[in-house]
Amino acid sequence: MKELPVMRIVVGAPSNGVALKDEIKDLLEKDDRVSEVVDISSPDITYPAVSVAAAQQVVEGSADRAVLVCGTGVGTAIAATKVTGARAATAHDLVTVRGAVENYDAQILCMGQNVIAPAHARALVDLWLDLRHDPSGFYGPKVREIEEFESGA
């Protein structure tokens, strides 16, 4: 079996996502597939601010991936995707998590504390850590098409 690289993960949440974010952070800190977990949350941070900050870290390369949690996961995904080069996806089931990474190369997983139980969120993150995008696969040209549009090419 091919060994997967160890990742640096940034996590963040506004106040309405802290409980689930803390569950996920605890899981990540105990996982051998993760070398570092950086929590950029603060008591007064807004979902746009935490989402943009996490996305910037991923795009700049100081983090490999990010997990963001708000009430539904939608607000964090919308805000994170405003950072050029960031691909964030809201996912609350195994099929969507798999597709987000393998098909669309999403580096940022967004979830909603009001939508998913912690046990299910932990299962999704566990799968998410093993997933990779194959740029030579069927969806590779489509991801490149998005990147070209984004860059103005």
Results as ranks from 00 to 15, higher is better:
A100V: 15
T96Y: 04
G73S: 01
A86N: 10
A55N: 01
Q56D: 09
V95D: 04
E60P: 10
D93L: 08
V67Y: 10
S51N: 13
T84G: 12
A77H: 02
V69L: 05
A100F: 05
V97D: 04
T72Y: 03
A54K: 02
G75A: 15
A63V: 00
A80Q: 11
R87V: 15
G71N: 12
E60Q: 12
G99N: 06
R87F: 07
G75E: 03
H92E: 04
S51A: 11
A63H: 10
T72F: 06
G61I: 03
A66E: 05
V95N: 03
T84K: 14
G61K: 05
L94M: 14
G85P: 14
A54R: 01
A88M: 02
D64S: 13
N103W: 10
V95G: 00
D93W: 12
C70N: 11
R65Y: 02
A91Q: 07
H92M: 11
V74L: 15
A80V: 15
V58Y: 00
A79N: 06
S62G: 02
T72Q: 02
A80S: 14
A66N: 01
T81R: 08
A86M: 07
A55Q: 10
I78Q: 10
A63R: 02
Q57T: 00
I78T: 11
V67L: 02
G71W: 02
S62A: 03
A100N: 09
G75K: 03
Q56F: 08
G99T: 15
L68W: 13
T81M: 13
G61E: 06
T90G: 07
T81S: 13
S51E: 10
V83T: 09
V52L: 00
I78G: 14
A66L: 11
S62V: 00
A53D: 06
G73N: 09
S62C: 04
S51F: 05
G61H: 10
S62N: 01
D64F: 08
G75I: 01
V97Y: 12
R98F: 06
A63G: 01
A86E: 15
A100Y: 07
T81G: 13
V83R: 07
A66S: 02
V97H: 05
D93K: 12
A77G: 06
V69A: 00
A89Q: 12
A91M: 08
A53W: 02
Q57I: 00
A79V: 14
T81V: 15
H92C: 09
A88E: 04
R98H: 09
R98T: 12
A55D: 03
A53E: 11
V69S: 01
E60C: 08
A91Y: 04
L68H: 10
A53M: 06
E102C: 14
R87E: 13
G85E: 15
G99H: 12
A79L: 00
G99M: 14
D93S: 01
A63K: 12
D93A: 09
A54H: 01
A55F: 07
R98S: 00
V69E: 01
A86F: 06
T81C: 13
V58G: 00
A100C: 09
T81P: 11
V52G: 07
G75M: 05
L94N: 00
V59H: 15
I78P: 12
N103K: 09
A66R: 04
V74R: 13
A54D: 00
L68N: 04
V101K: 14
A55I: 08
L94D: 05
T81K: 07
T96I: 05
A77K: 07
E60L: 15
